[in-house]
């Protein structure tokens, strides 16, 4: 069983494809979603795809270093910070408008 698993163990290619697919899903969600919270989730997926990418490269390209891990940890922290700011703004906007639909965010025209 373990031999079988080892034979089909995903390599660098598979992992990078997974990251690219995740990133594309996030980008698609960001461009098509109308709910601000869903957009923030899509951003989170994109940032996490990038973090995973860094870890994958670390594992397969420079297994004896930790630069990629450090990068991933900081990306996670920054993603969290970004979402906190985004959610805070969404909450305060919801109080004013009772809606988080980004299609209605067109009060400024020029």
């Amino acid at each position: 069983m373990t031999e079988l698993l080892a034979r089909f163990a995903p390599g660098l290619h598979e992992w990078l494809t997974l990251c690219a697919v995740l990133y594309a899903i996030g980008l698609y969600g960001l461009l098509t979603r109308r709910n601000a919270i869903a957009i923030l989730m899509a951003v989170e997926i994109m940032l996490n795809a990038a973090a995973l990418n860094a870890v994958v490269f670390n594992r397969f390209v420079t297994p004896n270093e930790i630069d990629g891990h450090i990068m991933a940890i900081f990306v996670i922290v920054m993603a969290a910070a970004e979402i906190v700011v985004g959610m805070a703004i969404v909450v305060s906007l919801y109080r004013l408008r009772a809606s988080v639909d980004v299609n209605q965010m067109n009060s400024m025209k020029g």
Binding site: Y23, L27, L47, N53, M78, G86
Partner: peptide, 21 residues
């Protein structure tokens, strides 16, 4: 600003991870 700034960050950080690799 948050949404588009986060999109820009996602671009930059994905590009950085590829450069690192």
């Amino acid at each position: 600003y948050v949404i588009l700034g986060a999109l820009a960050s996602a671009f930059i950080v994905y590009g950085f991870s590829i450069l690192y690799g």
